[in-house]
């Protein structure tokens, strides 16, 4: 699955996309491929303050538990309600309906993240 160029990426395989005043956050297709079938996504409560690079939740697949890292600092404005009962959306549409949280950013960290070309290059270098 190509990495859409309408958003930014972290080396921890999260994506972040500006949607009006908020930033929507999810994990990349590469991350999902590595994790396998997602069985549980634990997300923070709305209102939680996030710090860039710090864990904000966990994602569990059949075989593993992984932490989710905040790509940027800010306040959690929304969480994807469908993931509570349909965690498999992260597998089927990681860049779309499998999104995780929406953040009201407190700074301009988004612009410092990798663009799609740089992230795609990072994946290729790792292989």
């Amino acid at each position: 699955m190509p990495n859409p160029s309408d958003r930014r990426y972290t080396k921890d395989h999260e994506w972040a996309r500006r949607d009006d005043g908020r930033v929507t956050v999810g994990i990349t297709a590469f991350a999902v491929e590595q994790l396998g079938d997602i069985t549980l996504v634990e997300l923070p409560a709305v209102g939680t303050q996030l710090r860039a690079g710090q864990p904000f939740g966990t994602i569990e697949s059949v075989k593993s538990v992984s932490e989710l890292y905040a790509p940027l600092s800010g306040r959690v404005a929304a969480i994807n309600p469908r993931l509570e009962t349909e965690p498999e959306l992260v597998n089927s549409a990681p860049f779309d309906t499998g999104w995780m949280i929406a953040v009201e950013p407190s700074g301009d960290e988004l612009e410092q993240l990798l663009d799609a070309a740089a992230y795609t290059a990072l994946l290729q270098d790792a292989h």
């Binding site: 396998g36 079938d37 059949v62 075989k63 498999e88 597998n91």
Partner: peptide
């Protein structure tokens, strides 16, 4: 082999 198509499938 850990999986082919996916563990759940």
């Amino acid at each position: 082999p850990l999986q082919y198509r996916g563990i759940v499938a």
